[in-house]
């Protein structure tokens, strides 16, 4: 399953126009300064932002196609978006947070909790399971948010600055986690970061975005041309 996106979003002050193709198992890092349109791109792929032009295809499915008037709502896209502010539900326990997507998909409570506990364990936060979302530390919340997205078995993983909310000490651990649990070679991954080192270490390819357009010299164009 591969991601093929050409996202055009027009705003009053800038235009995002980025074409990106990501192969199964491939990780593309999207780098660039604040306001370059990185987050907008992820949200457009996830269906939270409507395209003004272009398309988003995931495997055989058309998620967005402006010409054809297609816009699949976010809840039916199977895009695992991990937000920069992690957005863990403050009123639910860590376990219920991770079980949320499974429950929404109709998985029975007991089974959903069992699977959620497994994900918390894999991400090293099993001991936080009963704690309320609002009581988690930044690092814990980030892992719970990752587990929550991965538990839904998404077709694409979209990571928005996964290290931004973390203190320096916990970054290496989360980076290792990402490598072992997220970038597992089965699906396309887009990683937004403003840290070139993160990009180099985790990504197969780096695309640099500036004022809504890919910079010359990055490999975005090449990837676009790939089959």
């Amino acid at each position: 399953m591969s991601l093929d996106a050409h996202v055009v979003v027009r705003r009053a002050d800038f235009v995002l126009d980025l074409a990106l193709a990501v192969e199964p198992g491939e990780t593309v890092a999207l780098v660039g300064s604040n306001g370059a349109g990185k987050t907008t791109f992820l949200h457009a792929v996830a269906g939270l932002v409507r395209l003004d032009d272009g398309h988003v295809r995931l495997g055989g499915r058309v998620l967005s196609d402006v010409r054809a008037g297609t816009h699949v709502p976010p809840e039916r896209r199977r895009c695992g978006l991990v937000f920069q502010q992690h957005l863990v539900f403050p009123h639910l326990s860590a376990l219920e947070n991770v079980a949320f997507g499974l429950r929404a998909a109709g998985v029975r409570r007991r089974e959903a909790r069992r699977r959620a506990a497994g994900w918390l364990d894999r991400l090293g936060v099993a001991d936080c399971g009963r704690r309320c979302g609002a009581q988690l530390s930044g690092g814990q919340a980030q892992r719970v948010a990752l587990a929550r997205s991965l538990a839904c078995a998404p077709d694409v993983v979209l990571l928005d600055e996964p290290f931004a909310a973390l203190d320096l000490a916990s970054r290496p651990a989360v980076r290792d986690l990402l490598r072992s649990e997220v970038l597992d070679g089965t699906r396309p991954t887009v990683l937004v970061t403003h840290d070139p080192q993160d990009a180099r270490e985790l990504a197969d390819r780096v695309v640099s975005l500036s004022f809504g357009s890919p910079c010359r010299g990055t490999s975005a164009a090449g990837a676009d041309a790939a089959p």
Binding site: R78, G80, L81, F89, G101, A105
Partner: peptide, 27 residues
């Protein structure tokens, strides 16, 4: 609102989001 958007990306229908996220938050 962003919590509701996050819930939607997890595959939750509008009704489910309303019931499990929106209502408890504005409880």
């Amino acid at each position: 609102v962003s919590l509701e958007r996050a819930a939607a990306t997890l595959g939750a229908s509008r009704w489910y989001v309303f019931r499990r996220v929106t209502l408890p938050l504005v409880g």
